[in-house]
C-alpha cells in the first residue's frame, strides 16, 4: 500500500483553525500534502451531510477542526459542532464507516504546530486504514 496517496478533506473554521493553518505556513513548518482545506465561518456552520458527501465523492479521510471550547468567535458554534459530532459518530458506526476516518479536533489561531501534527497524524492513520473502498466499489458499479 506504499503508493497509496490518501485524499483528506479538512473542514475548518475561519477564525481559529484556518488562521492556525496560516500560522503553520508563516512558520514554515512542513506537513503532508494530502490534506486540503475548505473554509467555513464556524464549525457550527458545518452540515455533517457534507462529510458523507465527501466520502461518497472519494475522500479517504476527513478533519473537522475549529476553535477550542469557550473560544468560539461566535461564542457557541463549536459546541453545536461538538454535539453534532457525537451524534454523527454513531451514524458512521451504523453506516459501517470506520470512525477513525474522521478526526474531530480543536486548533486555535496560535497553534500552528498543532495543525501540522494533526494533519500528519491523520494522514498516517488513513494510510494505515487504506483507501475508502466503499467508494471505489460504488464507482465500479457505476453508482455515485
Amino acid at each position: 500500500m506504499s503508493d497509496f496517496n490518501p485524499k483528506i478533506v479538512a473542514f475548518v473554521c475561519n477564525w481559529c483553525t484556518y488562521a492556525g493553518a496560516d500560522l503553520t505556513g508563516t512558520s514554515r513548518m512542513k506537513y503532508s500534502p494530502q490534506v486540503s482545506i475548505i473554509r467555513f465561518p464556524c464549525t457550527g456552520r458545518i452540515d455533517f451531510m457534507l462529510l458523507l458527501k465527501a466520502f461518497a465523492s472519494g475522500a479517504d479521510g476527513i478533519i473537522v477542526s475549529g476553535c477550542h471550547p469557550n473560544d468560539c468567535h461566535y461564542s457557541s458554534g463549536n459546541f453545536h459542532a461538538r454535539r453534532r459530532w457525537i451524534v454523527f459518530r454513531s451514524l458512521l458506526d451504523f453506516l459501517g464507516i470506520d470512525v477513525r476516518r474522521v478526526r474531530f479536533s480543536w486548533v486555535s489561531a496560535a497553534e500552528g504546530a498543532k495543525w501540522a501534527q494533526l494533519v500528519n497524524e491523520t494522514a498516517e492513520q488513513i494510510r494505515l486504514l487504506g483507501p475508502f473502498k466503499r467508494y471505489h466499489q460504488l464507482r465500479g458499479l457505476g453508482v455515485e
Binding site: D22, T24, T26, K30, S36
Partner: peptide, 14 residues
C-alpha cells in the same frame, strides 16, 4: 501559499 507552498516540499504533489 500558507496552506501549500510554505508547508510542502517542491514536488509534483505540491
Amino acid at each position: 501559499r500558507e496552506h501549500c507552498s510554505w508547508v510542502h516540499e517542491k514536488s509534483e504533489a505540491t
